[in-house]
């Protein structure tokens, strides 16, 4: 009996450790896998020149990723500019002003928003954002556009990243001890002054981290952006023109990638690029959050 119990215990320990090790090794395994697949391309052209070159002619063996990186950066920037202020203020409202009852109503809503599949956001983009841009917004600026453009991608992304950033920010603001707010109020600050000078100021590392993680999230988002951004391979500074972000490149071309030499390698390199950038951002900013929470 005793031996059986111990044997079960031992077997089980192996199972547990193996599981945990698999999960933790996952990014490394993915990274190595993608790297091996991109070796044929990297042997032929250095990573640096791949990233900076803007000539994309796969059939002639020219792989310049810059237009895609540019597209990704552009939509991500628009998304950040639109979502960041909303997140900060919403988080302030939910942690500083709202009563418990209101917070209890809000949290499921934030969760549902965060849980909606990205294809649904894409449908929303096509139904609402795209026509809104082409019919109402573009005429104001005197441009004509189909609506499938960088701006549409940015707007859809901003809506998607709000619940994600907001959740982190709420956690960050909640770590500010109430005693500090009491101190500030007792010194004669109004509640807004306390929030501005004390709560937000003390949370700056956390808020920056939330921003960083939101940016990383937006940078890797695929389907929703791809559905509204136009997928036009041409660098344009005009947000009413179409763009072609990096994830969309991978998703759009998987069908033909095996028929053109090195094309599959190029797409796997794009995925590797996404993985490395996003993982780095995550590691740095999560660390910052983790540090501030310990304090």
């Amino acid at each position: 009996m005793i031996f059986r119990r111990i044997a079960v215990d031992k077997t089980n320990n192996v199972w547990m450790v193996a599981s945990l090790a698999t999960i933790l090794a996952l990014p490394l395994i993915i990274g190595i896998g993608l790297y091996i697949k991109s070796i044929p391309l990297l042997e032929y052209q250095s990573a640096g020149s791949l990233v900076t070159s803007s000539e994309w002619l796969p059939s002639q063996g020219k792989f310049g990723f810059w237009p895609f990186i540019y597209g990704s950066l552009y939509v991500t920037m628009i998304s950040f500019l639109l979502s960041a202020p909303v997140c900060v203020f919403a988080a302030i409202y939910l942690t500083q002003y709202a009563s418990k009852r209101i917070v209890n109503i809000f949290m499921p809503i934030v969760d549902i928003l965060a849980g909606l599949p990205s294809v649904i956001y894409g449908v929303f983009g096509i139904l609402v954002v795209v026509p809104f841009i082409s019919k109402y917004l573009a005429p104001i600026f005197d441009v004509s556009t189909s609506g499938y453009c960088i701006l549409a991608g940015g707007i859809v992304l901003s809506i998607m990243s709000i619940p994600y950033m907001l959740n982190i920010m709420i956690e960050v603001f909640n770590t500010v001890p109430i005693g500090i707010k009491e101190a500030s109020l007792s010194l004669g600050a109004t509640s807004w002054e306390s929030i501005k000078h004390v709560v937000v100021k003390r949370s700056i590392p956390g808020v920056i981290s939330a921003f960083g993680l939101g940016i990383a999230k937006a940078f890797g988002e695929t389907i929703a952006v791809m559905m509204v951004v136009g997928n036009v391979l041409k660098i344009s500074h005009n947000p009413f023109k179409g763009g072609y972000p990096l994830p969309a490149l991978i998703a759009n071309n998987y069908g033909e990638m095996l028929s053109i030499p090195k094309y599959d390698s190029a797409l796997m390199f794009a995925a590797l690029l996404l993985l490395v950038v996003i993982l780095l951002i995550n590691i740095v900013f999560r660390y910052l959050i983790y540090k501030t929470q310990i304090k």
Partner: peptide, 17 residues
């Protein structure tokens, strides 16, 4: 902390892998 970081990897990367 590592698990949280994993959560951030976009699904297209999983797809490619």
């Amino acid at each position: 902390y590592l698990l949280d970081s994993l959560w951030g990897i976009p699904s297209i990367v999983y797809g490619a892998f």
